[in-house]
Write a protein that binds this DNA or RNA. Sequence first.
DNA 1: TTGAAAGCGCTAACAA
DNA 2: TTGTTAGCGCTTTCAA
Lengths: 305, 305
Amino acid sequence: MAAAAGVSRATVSYVLNGVDARVSDETRERVLKAARTLGYTPNAMASALRAGRTSVVIFALPNWPLGPALGEFLSGCVTELDRLGYTPLVHFVHASGPDGLQKACDRVRPVGVVAPSGDLPPERIEALRGNGTHGFVLMGRDPVPGVPTFILDQNRVGAVAIEHLAERGHQRVLALTPLDPQLGDLGEVRLAGAQEAAERLGVTLTHVPADELQRGLEVEPTGVYAFNDELALGALDALPDGVALIGTDDSPAARLSHPRLTTIRFGGQDNPARIASTLHAQIAGETIQEPVINSTPTVVQGETT
Amino acid sequence: MAAAAGVSRATVSYVLNGVDARVSDETRERVLKAARTLGYTPNAMASALRAGRTSVVIFALPNWPLGPALGEFLSGCVTELDRLGYTPLVHFVHASGPDGLQKACDRVRPVGVVAPSGDLPPERIEALRGNGTHGFVLMGRDPVPGVPTFILDQNRVGAVAIEHLAERGHQRVLALTPLDPQLGDLGEVRLAGAQEAAERLGVTLTHVPADELQRGLEVEPTGVYAFNDELALGALDALPDGVALIGTDDSPAARLSHPRLTTIRFGGQDNPARIASTLHAQIAGETIQEPVINSTPTVVQGETT
DNA sequence: TTGAAAGCGCTAACAA
DNA sequence: TTGTTAGCGCTTTCAA
């Protein structure tokens, strides 16, 4: 490449990295033309080696059920990170082996990582810091000291649902959960939150896996809380008239259903932007002012409650 | 590191890469211990630079609606690739800028790429080949000459749905589509396939966006084909008794709904494994025998048709 | 305004 | 069985 343009490798580097002060217009033109002709792309491995860092940000996705809400959130994060000049890539934690995230980080040396707090313990973070990873955002229920954390309080989701039903006078409530082990840990926390709220508010909560819906109806509930919108929609037709129903996720389908489903929306629109900028600030070496990003669940009122 | 173990860098490299023939047991032990003590991790950038290739496989995800079916497929691909020793990472094509995939490939120099055929034209593939990318699997409607292709015939999905309804004697059918622009291109192709099949079979097909379901019912359809299961479930309660309903995706919620939803399952269980092994073979320099991986949609019979 | 050269951390060929 | 060394492609300092 340098030879093709008749200049030194150094000059090529300056041109391609926009250090304009250093090269004459004429030389720059020649280099750019040669680059185009040859289809030259700088070797990112080499420059990463030299610089001691890549532009990659790994988003470690835990075993969450893939749906519209998650898609929107992920897309948002990717878009923001891309805008800031990073190369965001999603790693499926549960689908790789036990040390999948660890291995992925060792192999791409990301400059930043977004990961569930459970998958990235403090000692790993320390190890990564020494390897060129400078930005961290954890996702979890509780704040992690010293590391910016995106609070996803599934516990609260369950509580909000029950509070909503209780406010409307429902005393016997069914909690409808997917069979899918995917919702596993996530679901347990939600259920616990719902249970707590139920006790607090004097609501009788019966937990029923989705495939036993019919059996659950024997307790003659006045309200049903489904752990996701699909489940709610699937139950809608089977529920006796007058039984209230609230789903979770605010999926597009919930907005389009007849009757329109009441559901729970998780988190604000600007969370992806805040996650991205938190990462960016850390990587730039700034101190983070707000180490906690809160995601509050809110009820989206429909016609089913 | 080499110094800490009192050996040369070469020896460290051999030990950590399992070239056992070269080092004595005693030396190996010493090196491994030192590595553990120091928390030493080989710099993958350096070794990638040296080797001319990384272990990363980029899976370029187009603007498909995220749901359980896609999740299963993606997880499958990731698991298989991981098993083969690669580092699979998912790139959200639509969420990055226009040349997002290009940029991502330039920055991580993946050894393999799985991408929609529309996002990876032949000239790009050629360029990538020169940059250390040796495995390609395209996803699209039609085979691409010279490149293994995973055939996703959305056209056929639409046709299968209409055929299923026609077989059961339905002559007036509603096609219920999401508003979501996400399904855009994908949806158009499906609709076209359904339209063709309808004409062929003498079925009257009316296309209605999901938010106009009520208006669609004025044509008094005897069957409804929804472009995804969530939409189908959302409509279930609103449809008059006796109207047949078929969804798309075979989502868990469809299996759990009451009545159980008839739906369309897309593709076989072993597609991820075939995609992974096709990539693997190419990277190993083998010639691919079966350059086309077919994904045939099949009806999953429920109680709604 | 430009070139020469060092060095990022690793691996593989060659020497001992 | 182990050490020495060249060189992967880049950026950046120093010299011209």
